[in-house]
Simulated assay, not measured.
Amino acid sequence: MLDDRAATDPLATMTVLPDAALTEAQIAAIRRVAERADALVEASLSANTRKAYGSAWRQWSEWCLGFGLDPQRADAPWLAMHLTALSETRKLSTLELRRAAVLEVRRRLGRPLSFDDAQFQAFLAGLRRTKGVRPSRKAALLEENLRAVMLLLVPETAPDPKRRLRDRALLLTGFAGGFRRSELAGFDLRDLSFTPEGLVLFVAGSKTDQERRGDEVGIQAVPSSPLCAATAVSAWLAARGDTPGPLFCRIDRGGHLTYGIDGRLQPIDSKTVARLVKRVIKGTGLAEGEFSGHSLRAGMMTAADRKGVPLEAAMQHGRWKDARTARGYRRHSSLWVGNFTDKLLSE
């Protein structure tokens, strides 16, 4: 295990590799491996994870080459030094991803790196003691925000009513279902069904379901509410039609649905969800930089907490597997539910 000094000063245990002077041919070979790093990662991981791992390995490779090192042979202290340098501008969650990426690609290359969980936790503890950690969290998109947003997305008064119908349905579904932006972008029309109680969406695969077993999420219909996701989705489907393809499809600048050469509607990507959230929030006068695609998922958990929904029920609905992670989605507004500190000062 790295001791306290090694955790904050990786050079304390640094070893110089015997092949520090790399030839041009070796450097070219290293860069070829870096370019195909995402293909080396286990197929059981999601496409987004493989892409992130590939990017992390490429950055690790270029960093090592800057020191004349082979990234396929550099040992744990060098990785600690790399992560320490990243910690100046990156969150700890990013460091965790970088470590996982390097270890996974090294394993796949047949050159495993020994930097186990105990070592890594000691390393993180050293970082926390020296610089501290403040979580960076985006604001939750709550009911009051959504009510204001719906007033901005009235389809009857817009030159592009289909876009507004889609955006209303997407936002309200994301909030009610606590969906990740990748899940919203990934829904196919076949994943949706209606029941007398409301609508059901099948999540084919997600961040916490790497084996793609799938899960169903039910959203109850509340026709009397302007925030009813079932009503919004029904209105969107009337405009979208039953053409095969993504549930929330791409719309061009002219307000028309876009089709591929196979006749299927074209999908949006997860960044479209994030841009939509920022755009509508800006329209309400709030700071768009405080919100992201994750604000819908945080909004569901925070609203559930404010209304006394048991954590276990909210976790099941949002498909969280870890209670600590789920609690992290509760934003500051839920701190005042049942708060007693005012009573400490009352006479």
Rank of each mutant, 00 (worst) to 15 (best):
L69F: 05
A204Q: 15
L113M: 13
W57P: 01
D116H: 10
Q210W: 05
F340I: 12
A185V: 05
S87W: 00
G260D: 06
D3H: 03
W320S: 04
R330L: 15
E88V: 11
G245N: 04
T23N: 04
L17K: 09
M300G: 00
W78M: 07
L311K: 01
Y259Q: 04
R108F: 01
A303H: 15
K271R: 14
D342E: 14
L69G: 01
D215Y: 11
T8Y: 00
V203L: 09
F179Y: 14
A323C: 01
W236L: 06
A298G: 15
S292E: 08
K162A: 15
D70I: 02
D269P: 03
R168Y: 08
R5M: 08
A232T: 10
D188W: 11
R181G: 03
E143A: 13
A43L: 12
V280K: 06
G68M: 02
T157P: 01
Q220W: 11
C228R: 04
K207R: 11
L247M: 00
A20D: 11
S333Y: 05
Q26W: 00
A140P: 07
L153F: 11
P246D: 08
I268H: 04
K91A: 15
R319H: 08
R163D: 06
L22R: 03
S136G: 12
R324D: 11
E156Y: 03
Q316L: 13
R297E: 10
R134C: 02
V102L: 03
S206A: 15
D188L: 12
L345M: 10
R58D: 09
I281E: 08
F179P: 06
R212G: 03
L171H: 04
G54P: 01
A76R: 09
A140T: 10
G110F: 07
A34Y: 01
R147E: 14
F194A: 08
G214F: 09
E35G: 13
A238L: 14
A20H: 15
A28D: 13
R58M: 08
T284C: 01
Q59H: 14
E290R: 14
K321Y: 00
R212T: 08
R330P: 03
Y259K: 05
I27R: 15
A185L: 07
S234T: 14
A158Q: 11
R58E: 10
G214M: 10
A239Y: 00
R212A: 15
A118M: 09
S234W: 04
D167V: 06
I251Y: 01
A221Q: 07
E35H: 10
A169R: 05
M301K: 03
A298N: 07
F194P: 05
F115P: 03
T94H: 02
Q210I: 09
R58N: 07
